[in-house]
Amino acid sequence: MKASLRSALSALGVAFTAYLAVGGMFWTSTPQQPLLMVAMIALYLVTVWLCIFWGSGTTPLPLWLTALALLAAVLVPNVTWFAAGDDVRLQTWATWGLGGISALLAILVVRRRVWAAWIGVVILAVSGSFWIGIVSALSLGAVGAVVWVGIAQLVTGLMARAARDTAELTELQRSSSEWLASQSGRRRERRVTVQRAIALAGPVLTRVIETGGVLDDDERALARLSEGRLRDELRGRRLLDDAVRLQLETVRRRGTEVTMLDEGGLDGVEETQLTAIRTQLAQALADARSERVFIRTSQHESIAVTVVGRSRSEDDPDGEDVVDLWHEIRWPADADAP
Rank of each mutant, 00 (worst) to 15 (best):
E249Y: 09
E249C: 06
E249Q: 13
T250I: 13
T250K: 14
R252Y: 08
R252A: 14
R253P: 08
R254M: 11
R254K: 15
G255I: 07
T256M: 09
T256S: 12
V258F: 06
T259N: 10
L261D: 13
D262T: 06
D262C: 06
E263K: 11
E263R: 14
G264P: 04
G265I: 07
G265T: 09
G265K: 10
L266T: 04
L266K: 04
D267K: 10
D267E: 13
D267I: 09
G268F: 14
V269C: 07
E270Y: 10
E270M: 13
Q273Y: 11
Q273D: 15
L274D: 12
L274T: 09
A276I: 08
A276G: 00
I277S: 07
R278L: 01
R278K: 09
T279C: 08
Q280C: 07
Q280Y: 08
Q280K: 13
L281I: 01
L281C: 01
L281Y: 04
L281W: 06
L281G: 01
A282C: 05
Q283R: 10
Q283F: 10
Q283P: 00
A284E: 02
A284L: 00
L285N: 00
L285K: 02
L285R: 02
A286H: 09
D287L: 04
D287G: 02
D287M: 02
S290V: 01
R292Y: 00
F294G: 05
F294S: 12
I295D: 07
I295R: 05
R296W: 02
T297I: 03
T297H: 03
S298I: 00
Q299N: 02
Q299I: 02
Q299T: 04
E301A: 13
E301H: 08
S302G: 01
I303F: 08
I303L: 11
I303N: 04
I303E: 09
A304W: 06
A304T: 07
V305Y: 08
V305R: 06
T306C: 12
T306M: 14
T306W: 12
V307R: 01
V307Y: 01
V307G: 03
V307M: 05
